[in-house]
Design a protein around this nucleic acid. Structure first.
Lengths: 232, 232
DNA sequence: GACCATAAGGGACATATGTCCTTTCTCTAA
DNA sequence: TTAGAGAAAGGACATATGTCCCTTATGGTC
């Protein structure tokens, strides 16, 4: 990460995400804006952490690996997202690794400053409570989905969560085959098996694969296949 | 649930779990003690909820089911545990069902009272923040375990989490065969497959099954088999 | 001790999924 | 247009796991 100096962007981001009321005036002076590159590791599991980060531009993935090297992606994050909140509250090392999957920006602030200036401010505590509770809720929801349903339903749910409102829409440009590895890690299966399921859905005419990108052909049948589930 | 009237127990529980500093004097007057029976459903997924419950005696299971009727147990809870906190913060319906697996007691308080008397008290907000963050952490930890490891390792981890410190210890008396169904639902497998894995660990001399109860025979090999993992 | 009902455990088969490695496809350079 | 390298997809086989239902075990009653 590279610190960005003397930029008005920081305050623009505070405005954009309505953070001005969350922080006291004193704490605002302690905030710094950093830029990160695609592929950069922002935090590593097990490391010490002393700062909280507010993701204000770009996209990151939260992931973990077993000692055997098996990976799983817990979630992708886009703005506004908080990194290091759970570790701040629990006073622990980094729970899951965080890696950038695009270039972007974070606002960072030192835990010591937060503790001394915000720890007894109701506005900030409410904000933290909302953030952590929303994380718990989305994690719980995804966990239920992952444990109760086979890969086909999970893939359908995932594709639904990406699609825009119009029928047969094109996915995000990240939906290339290098992302199939990531989708496999996200929904908890092997790359091979994900390809089997994609092939099956293509054969049924629900989706199609063109030059490594996936397209929805039949949104209503995809919804049926997802059985009312959707990753949030 | 049955309300318990004019009992000094409520205040004994507040002392026992050091809740006196958490609540304002005004809110303490709004607290009620209830008794529940084994098997009783305290909350059902999707229902409206208007009260927060503090489990102060007994044991409950947090579970969910798919529309197809497939069940999973998210977690068991023993005192001190909070029920309805996530729903209070997010203002939503019940996320997971809660059922008693023993008789016990909860202290309950109406959301409206909490909101009017506690919503701006820092002590209470800190307490809620600690509780929800701990929930997030344990759920995340269990989720990683469930997604990264096969059933055998998960069972070993589960058995380790139940055992006391001394070698070859006897499990809780709940460890009867009726609980095998619950363990299967907790670690996310079928009853049949759990029996396969138990059989395998018995054949290897790591655990043994006597009249429907499981006993650890070789704690160090069980630890090896768990590969450093343990359900928290 | 025998019998019966219910609960617990396991057989058989099928499906989902993982692993390893080969084949095919795509893109770039000549 | 062709060739080659690297990436992507799929074949083959194995394992983990689920489903269904039968067999065995256990406990209670007579």
């Amino acid at each position: 990460m590279k610190k960005v100096n003397n930029s008005p962007s920081l305050f623009e981001y505070l405005d954009q995400f309505k953070l001005n009321k969350i922080f006291s005036e004193g704490l605002k002076e302690k905030l710094s804006l950093y830029q990160f590159q695609n592929g950069e590791i922002l935090c590593s599991k097990g490391d010490e952490i002393h700062k909280m980060y507010f993701l204000v531009k770009g996209k990151v993935k939260i992931y973990t690996t077993s000692p055997e090297g098996k990976a799983l992606i817990v979630r992708f994050k886009t703005p506004l997202a908080l990194i290091g909140d759970v570790e701040y509250i629990k006073g622990m090392h980094v729970l899951h690794s965080v890696q950038a999957v695009s270039e972007g920006y974070v606002i960072s602030v030192h835990y010591d400053d937060v503790r001394s200036m915000e720890n007894n401010r109701v506005e900030f505590l409410h904000f933290l409570l909302q953030v952590v509770t929303q994380k718990f809720y989305t994690e719980s929801h995804a966990t239920s989905l992952n444990r109760l349903y086979p890969v086909e339903i999970r893939l359908a749910s995932y594709l639904l969560s990406l699609s825009s409102e119009k029928c047969g829409s094109i996915f995000h440009e990240e939906m290339s085959t290098s992302n199939l590895t990531e989708i496999a890690d996200l929904i908890g299966t092997s790359y091979r098996h994900l390809n089997r399921v994609i092939h099956k859905l293509c054969e049924e005419g629900i989706i199609q694969r063109i030059k490594g990108s996936l397209y929805i052909k039949d949104l209503s049948r995809l919804r049926e296949r997802a059985e009312g589930n959707i990753y949030e």
